[in-house]
Nucleic acid binder design. Structure first.
Lengths: 270, 270
DNA sequence: AAGTGGTCTAGACCACTCG
DNA sequence: GAGTGGTCTAGACCACTTC
C-alpha cells in the first residue's frame, strides 16, 4: 500500500491531499511519543529498529529518522551508532511559547497567571539594552516594571525593555494585561521565534523584596532573556526575578546535543 | 566533479577513503561556523540558499541541510520556511562534556579547576536517589561531599550520590581528584552520554555557608543533575550549589526547538 | 556475522516568503 | 511568480554494537 507513481510520492493522497497540518514524521513522532508516555516502552527499553518502524508506517527510513530525531531533541529517547534507540524519560516537554511567556507557561501547567504593570516609561536605552536589542546607542525604549502572580501569589518581578518599534503597542495595553507576548501577536502580528536565556541567582534588592514579600537579601532565581522575531529582530530584553522555590528550570542534553551552557561570572558573553 | 558510479556515493574517495573522522556535513558545518564566528556573516545576515551551499561543496542538498541543522541546534542560525536562513548569534556553544563536568568546563573557558573530597560514605539510597539512579530502594550508594575551586576560590559545593556499580571506582580515587567523570572514563570506561539538569535558587545552609565562605541564608544557584551512560544507565545524581555571581547558565531556543523547561515549585517532576 | 544507526545521494512536490 | 526551505522517497555504503 505504498505507491508507485512519480518519485517518492505516496500513491495520491496521504500528504498531497492533506492540504494542511498533516506532516508524516510528526504523526509518527506523536504516536511513538504516546507509546512512550503511556509506558508501553518503559525507561531503558529499546525501540524497534528504523526499518521496523518504516515498515509499520509505510514510510521511508528518512521520515522515520526525522520522527525519532524529534523525540531525541525532546530528550525522550537517546541513540548511539550500531545499537537500538533507548527510552530515556517519560516526561513531556513544553513548547517554546511556554518558555517565553509566563502566562502561556502557567496555563500549560494548570495554574492561573496574572500580571500588573507598575510602571511604563520611555527612556534612552542603557548600553546593555541597546546591545541586546540591536538598537543604536541611546535609542528610546519602553522600560516596564511588572509584578507577576501565580494563583494569586506574587512570584516574579519583571523588568523589561521593549524595543522602540513595539513600544507604542505595549504602552497601549491595559495595566492588568495577562500576556504581553500574546497581545503583541494578536494586535501587531509580532511573534517571538527565538529566545536566549541567562539564568543565575542573586539577592533580593529592596524593591524586589517589597514586591515579592520576602526579606531583603533573600535568594532569587533570575532569568534574563531576549526574544526575537522570525527575522532575528529583537523584541524585548527582560530581567525576571523569581522568588526562591517558586520555579525550577530543567534541561536535558546529550553527547550529541548540548543546549545548555555555563558561564563564569556575571554571565557576560565575553 | 561529483561522480557517477554506484548510487549516491562519491567517486571513490571522499568519505570511503577517509577511514576515520571525516564527516562531510560536519566539515561543512565547521566551515560555515567559522565564517559566522569570523563575522563574514554578521548577525541578521542571510545565509546562501541550500542549493548554493550544495553547489559550493559539491554535496547533496540533504547533506547541506544536516550541516545547517547542526548550526541551528547550536543556536547560531535560525530559519523559517520560504525565507533564507539568518544568523542569530556569534557565540560558540560548549560541548556536552563541558556541561557535565565542572573540570572540563573550567578548562574550556580558560580557568583552573580543583576539587577536594571532604567525605565519602556508603549508605542506603534515599527514596529520591533510588528513583533518580533507577536503583532498588535501599540499595547502597556512595555519598560524596566535595568542594570545588575555580582559580583557587571556593565556588561550588557538590553533594553526589554515585550508583553502586561505580562506587568502588570513585572510592579509589585520590582525595584531590580533579575530575571524577574523566577518571571514570579513563579507568573504568564509564562515559556519560546523557544528562538532565534542574536549576533553581535557594538560601545557603550552614554547611554551604561555611564551605563557600558566605553568610548563612545568602543566595546560591543550585544545579541538580543526573548523568547516564549510552545505554541510559544512571551514573550519579548530584546537587551542586554555586555561590551567587560565580556562574550563569545560558540556553537558546526557538519556536521549533525548546530545550529548556520551567517547572513550578520544587522542581519535582510530577 | 548479522543487525542497526549514521551518512550520503538524486530527485520530487509542497508551503511559504519575498519582490 | 520565482525562489527557498520543509517534507518525502528509494537505495547505497559505512561504522559500530551485539550476539
Amino acid at each position: 500500500m505504498i505507491m508507485s507513481g512519480r518519485a517518492g510520492r505516496p500513491a495520491h493522497g496521504e500528504r498531497g491531499a492533506n492540504g494542511m497540518g498533516t506532516v508524516r514524521y510528526l504523526e509518527i513522532a506523536e504516536e511513538l511519543r504516546r507509546a512512550i508516555l503511556s509506558g508501553e516502552y518503559p525507561v531503558g527499553a529499546r525501540l524497534p529498529s528504523e526499518s521496523d518502524l518504516a515498515a509499520r508506517w509505510s514510510a521511508s527510513r528518512g521520515t522515520v529518522r526525522q520522527a525519532v530525531a524529534t523525540l531525541a531533541a525532546e530528550g525522550l529517547v537517546g541513540s548511539s551508532q550500531g545499537a537500538r534507540r533507548i527510552v530515556l524519560r517519560h516526561e513531556r516537554r513544553h513548547s517554546f511559547g511556554e518558555l517565553n511567556s509566563f502566562a502561556q507557561w502557567a496555563e500549560g501547567v494548570g495554574h492561573e497567571a496574572r500580571g500588573r504593570f507598575l510602571s511604563r516609561t520611555r527612556r534612552p536605552a542603557t548600553p546593555e539594552e541597546a546591545e541586546r536589542l540591536a538598537l543604536a546607542p541611546g535609542t528610546e525604549v519602553l522600560a516596564a516594571l511588572r509584578l507577576r502572580l501565580l494563583d494569586g501569589e506574587p512570584v516574579m518581578v519583571e523588568r523589561t525593555a521593549y524595543a522602540d518599534w513595539v513600544a507604542a503597542a505595549v504602552e497601549a495595553m491595559p495595566e492588568d494585561c495577562r500576556s504581553v507576548m500574546d497581545a503583541l501577536a494578536a494586535d501587531s502580528g509580532v511573534v517571538a521565534h527565538y529566545g536566549e536565556h541567562l539564568i543565575d541567582a542573586l539577592p533580593a534588592g529592596s524593591e524586589d523584596a517589597r514586591l515579592l514579600e520576602v526579606r531583603r537579601g533573600s535568594p532569587l532565581l533570575r532569568q534574563r532573556h531576549v526574544s526575537a522575531t522570525r527575522t532575528g529582530r529583537p523584541i524585548e530584553w527582560s530581567d525576571d526575578r523569581y522568588r526562591a522555590g517558586s520555579v525550577t528550570f530543567s534541561v536535558s542534553n546529550s553527547a550529541v546535543a548540548a543546549p545548555l551552557e555555563r558561564h563564569p561570572g556575571g554571565g557576560e558573553h565575553r
